[in-house]
Nucleic acid binder design. Structure first.
Lengths: 201, 201
DNA sequence: GTCTATAATACGATAGAC
DNA sequence: GTCTATCGTATTATAGAC
């Protein structure tokens, strides 16, 4: 849905000093939340990582949870941008699905060290009294929706969502086990049948 | 490897008051770690849950991490006991594998609310500077080893470990996605092909 | 074995000067 | 927009009486 602009549009200064500071905070938080988990990442960790003073961070994000929400938004945006790129690169939806599976394989060194960036956050946020399972679902929906669209384009209209969730189950499971066992070979072994599965559709 | 006993064996009083207290602590911790995660569970939470005083808990477990290790040991023991039960109930290894898959389906209400008890703990412990990925691996090995044994008994000697890890990938992936989406139907849908897969081996 | 009291620290968040 | 200083609380862990 487009928003109607009245009068000259006020251009948001995307590279202002404030914007840069905010982005540095966000980037550090994203990495730390991924590598150490949200609960174990402290405000002080972010201060040390960015060298930005405590009070200044609080100027951009009043609470730690505000940072989390912004990090999730950033993740969603980034994956959507990636999907758009794939759509441009691959006219065939089948090739886009292969791209998705290849992304898992291509990111194996991070997956092995820290687990899936979406899945581990999802597990943590889904837990009791984290009252933020919305964030986890929003993150997964970014993937599920896009994957379902590709299956629809493949003519699997009725089963699109089921197939999308199936593929997510497969890749998430691989990420967990490969992470626990620090085993890159397992990713290769488990990814291969997924490519075959996509081709057989 | 059996230990040779010399002289009359000293029987450990398994139902002494101390043992009972220790077990109550352990049971509460196990539930809390599962439902809220290890990092977000505090000593105070365990005190409130058990009504056992702080100092008394520290008499049995000096540190929070000591509790974690004991909880993992307890989990390992309990699953091993369950596996022995299955071995008695089912002479056919194929039926035992079906039992394993059914366990996931039968535990769906907990899986949906809190995720997989092994997988979520594994994700959390595998993270950076938790320096306790051993615990996660030990937990998963309890399953992987037993599953591999069943595949060997099925005549899949060469592929036993690969098949075991594949099955773990599948069930863990299902747990994650069903948890994030609070979707019990997804468990049923995704479990069915696993039974078929076992039968087709 | 059980309890109370408390030490020592890390945390999230705020106030207010510049 | 950036900084220093600090409040109030929650945390793990310990000391020592009973």
């Amino acid at each position: 849905m487009a928003t109607i602009q009245i009068g000259p549009q006020v251009q948001k200064p995307v590279n202002s000093r404030g914007e840069q500071t905010r982005n540095r905070i966000l980037e550090a938080a994203r990495t730390l939340f991924y590598r150490r988990g949200y609960a174990r990442t402290s405000f002080t960790d972010i201060v040390n990582e960015t060298q930005i003073r405590r009070g200044n961070i609080n100027h951009y994000f009043r609470t730690k949870r505000d940072i989390l929400e912004a990090v999730i938004d950033q993740n969603v945006d980034e994956y959507r941008r990636l999907f758009r790129q794939w759509e441009q690169d691959c006219p065939e939806p089948r090739d886009r699905l292969h791209r998705f599976v290849d992304m898992v394989a291509g990111n194996s060194s991070n997956l092995i060290r820290y687990g899936c960036p979406i899945g581990t956050l999802g597990s943590e946020l889904g837990k009791d009294s984290s009252d933020f399972s919305d964030g986890a679902r929003r993150l997964f929906d970014t993937f599920a929706d896009w994957l379902a669209t590709q299956f629809e384009l493949l003519g699997k209209k009725a089963d699109a969502r089921r197939l999308a969730l199936h593929l997510l189950c497969r890749t998430e499971g691989i990420s967990i086990i490969a992470h626990v066992y620090n085993d890159p070979a397992l990713i290769e072994t488990e990814i291969a049948p997924l490519h075959a599965w996509i081709d057989a559709l």
